[in-house]
Design a binder for these strands. Sequence first.
DNA 1: CTGTTAGCGCGTTCAG
DNA 2: CTGAACGCGCTAACAG
Lengths: 319, 319
Amino acid sequence: MTSRPQLAEVARRAGVSVATASRVLSGRGPASAASRDAVRGAATELGYVPHPVARRLARGAGTRVLFAVRDRRADILRDPFVTRAATAMAAAADADGLGVTVRHLPLDASAELDRIAADRSIAAVVLAGHDRALLDALPAALPGRFGVIGAGGPDVDSAAGVSALLRHLHLTGRRRIALIGGPPWLAASRPPMDAYTGLMHEAGLPVRVMTGDFTAARGRAAAQTVLRRWPGTDAIATVSDATALGVLQALATAGIRVPDDIAVTGFDDVPFAASAYPALTTATHPVEEIAAAAVRAAVGGTPAAAQLFPSHPVLRATA
Amino acid sequence: MTSRPQLAEVARRAGVSVATASRVLSGRGPASAASRDAVRGAATELGYVPHPVARRLARGAGTRVLFAVRDRRADILRDPFVTRAATAMAAAADADGLGVTVRHLPLDASAELDRIAADRSIAAVVLAGHDRALLDALPAALPGRFGVIGAGGPDVDSAAGVSALLRHLHLTGRRRIALIGGPPWLAASRPPMDAYTGLMHEAGLPVRVMTGDFTAARGRAAAQTVLRRWPGTDAIATVSDATALGVLQALATAGIRVPDDIAVTGFDDVPFAASAYPALTTATHPVEEIAAAAVRAAVGGTPAAAQLFPSHPVLRATA
DNA sequence: CTGTTAGCGCGTTCAG
DNA sequence: CTGAACGCGCTAACAG
């Protein structure tokens, strides 16, 4: 078997120039139907496969997608949401011959963002954990190849998902419903919070809000506070399964029955939600699809369309 | 601000040729102390940063690390172990300017492996979920840039980790200890299994083994079978937290008290293990470090040293 | 130890 | 619509 065929050989065999062959095979620029067929034929006959790296270099494009996760804590890279998203991105990027790199960004990430913009190996950036201020302060050097995951880009319709669970709680007789929300600095924390306050007002129910951070530890602590501060509470809704599992643990420790005394709902439908006891009632979060969409948008240079992916309630045992 | 300095400019400023500048900056090939200093000085003065893509192309190396996960199920890419490892790899690859791609491989992956070997954008491959047969059938085209994670490469010392938990069970009075192991086709399933049978024989205890697959569903089913088949069981050890959580759920449903009636142990110490109720006793699995080591070995072209990372017991409430 | 000279493989101007 | 030539930025052989 001869060595790998190159573009020049394909062109020669098709009877055209390398320029034309390149145009045809990369799908950029004009080409007559005749030469198109000739080039394609020659390519398949020779088993030609373009060299991805040479391609990116010539085009001045990078070879990897950076998944930048902004958060207070550096160990956010172990968060289930992050690992799911990162893995899905790494699978999605495969189609374009790209790889994925993940990096933690502190809340004040301006310096790091400049370095990212200067890195020529980076084809696109997907940012998570942002807020308005950060998006407004983006380096102009991040041209089109930039996207966000979460509020503003592809995201789960968390307002609808949480609303559905809240309505379920209401329908099943709950009237003292507390919510453990997301971190206030995070743009994605708003929609479900607004949905909650809106529904409570609408139903004439009291608003009882705690701040969470998507961890079980915070869920435990918040649940204890809820019990102390609002003794009559009959339901605790959360915006993350990890938080809800922490709540479940705190309630079990306190000898409170779930769902008889207090109902609990999560959000995300992580694999372990179904394995909890009692099994956690929650709402789906199509992280994999969202992550793939974010990669496509960033790589394609599409201005981040704020696409919302549906969230469906999953009724199990805790509510 | 002028445009980016290139190697030629650095060389000119340092008064040497581009070849010498390249040798100095890439650390390959000889160079006198004098020219070394000159080149380094010029580079920092100019703020020179090599173009990663051009570098890889010239070297004929790829730009991404492929994390290939072999398994029966395609949704293995959502497995917590896989997502943790993939994310850690993506973080580790950052240091080399590489990206990571993940791909699922069926149990019979020979064809796919050939395609991988032919992909010039792939700098290195890290394989998970292998067995002897697969390793023996690797395409010769995967030169040095290949490594495995799990038995044979960087791996957790699961035999030691499980042994420690088994000894703890024995010390606390358990005598009818069943084990739910890993899938038999997986090389990494052997060590903990051998450790279990060895310890049981040594202690004169009965060997009671079920096959697991690292899922909670299988853990539930296996636990039910254990209860039926071996009524006197007073402990169920597993080799994965997901499995153990399934066991916990099955026992709770059956009205069996944990740990009073039956003790349960997991393995991996995933974040949710601490959030279960009762909190799961398990052993640590430094997935992130192992993944990083695997990437380093594969990228560095080091023949996979079978390095074992320690596993420490984490005693919580279930045993 | 150093410099010269070819590549690495493809994209893309620009004239025709 | 097409082709020739140059450019992407660096590395590796091979003389010296």
